[in-house]
Amino acid sequence: MIDGIILKGFSGFYYVRTQAHGEVECSLRGRFRQERLTFLPGDYVKISLTNERQGVIEELLPRETELLRPPVANVDQAILVLALADPPPDLVLLDRLLVYLEQTPVMPVICFNKRDIAGDSEAEEIIGIYKDIGYDLVLTSVKTKTGFDELKNFLQNHISVFAGPSGVGKSSLLNVLEPGFKLETGSVSDKARRGKHTTRHTKLLSLYGGYVADTPGFSRIELPNVSREELSFLFPEMDGYRQDCRFNTCLHYKEPQCAVKQALERGAISQSRYKNYLRFLEEITARERSY
């Protein structure tokens, strides 16, 4: 049997990249349909050939990581792309993605795109929030071609996923990194200032000794299945203060002598991040009460 990696799936067929035979169009063995196994871009598989360009998936190898939104397997890095302007940065979605990734082995890299059209003071404030927390950052502009050497360094020899809302320039960034991709790009809706979907299916693209997944844009992602008490552990900036709270079960909301709220008052924790923390806390509380 031949080892390969699934690049994409479409209409019941899976396109598998192999070292010796290139890309092979594969169907599934009937037993996989009966077992209702899900096959994702990024899955490592073993296939048998029926001819030079077609084959059958015989075995699904164990996954190291799995993301549900976007649906992709075995990625070790997520490039979270937001525009600094047009459309305005959706920091609620960014923080949702970061919280989601904090409880996985996938490392986040924040890519703030359209740096050339963003106001300096507002952009620097947003950039500073995430830089101070310690997240890896890259600032890019498709128009001025800035930030791409740094972005290439992040992508080299990794299996990465590009994720973020529509209209922020994910496909445009990939077209600059590799013009041969020729990915469809779209504009931003004048009415809602939201991006229009151009990528319709998640697919892996070979790039810099690894792979990158171009994914459809989205505007919402569910929070991970964690308790109220666990949520603050997914906000790294709270790590240095949590143990100094009066109560071990402190939710950093209305409790007295809360070290996290004291850090917030001193400006050591971002107001926007804390507001999103409370938003997520309320969401998790409502979810727990509905059980």
Rank of each mutant, 00 (worst) to 15 (best):
L91A: 07
L91D: 02
R96Q: 08
L98Y: 02
L98S: 11
Y100G: 03
Y100A: 13
L101A: 10
L101P: 00
Q103W: 02
Q103N: 13
Q103K: 10
Q103V: 10
T104N: 11
P105N: 13
V106H: 06
M107C: 13
P108D: 07
P108E: 08
V109S: 11
I110A: 14
F112P: 11
F112H: 14
N113S: 15
K114W: 02
R115D: 10
R115N: 11
A118T: 05
A118Y: 03
G119K: 11
S121G: 03
E122Y: 09
E124F: 04
I126P: 00
I126D: 02
I127N: 07
G128Q: 13
I129V: 10
Y130L: 03
K131C: 02
I133H: 06
G134H: 08
G134M: 06
Y135I: 04
D136A: 12
L137H: 01
V138G: 01
L139V: 05
L139C: 04
T140E: 08
S141H: 01
K143V: 03
K143C: 00
T144D: 05
K145G: 02
K145N: 10
G147F: 01
F148I: 06
F148W: 05
E150P: 00
E150Y: 01
L151A: 05
N153M: 09
N153H: 09
N153P: 01
F154I: 06
F154K: 01
Q156C: 08
N157D: 07
N157K: 12
I159L: 09
S160C: 09
S160I: 08
F162N: 01
A163R: 05
G164W: 06
G167L: 13
K170S: 05
K170H: 14
S172M: 05
S172K: 12
S172H: 09
L173F: 02
L174E: 03
L174N: 07
N175R: 12
N175D: 02
V176T: 05
L177T: 01
E178I: 04
E178T: 07
G180Y: 03
F181N: 02
K182N: 14
L183V: 13
E184T: 14
G186H: 13
S187T: 11
S187H: 15
S189T: 10
D190L: 15
A192F: 09
R193I: 07
R194C: 06
T199A: 15
R200T: 11
H201D: 13
T202S: 14
K203Y: 08
K203M: 12
L204R: 14
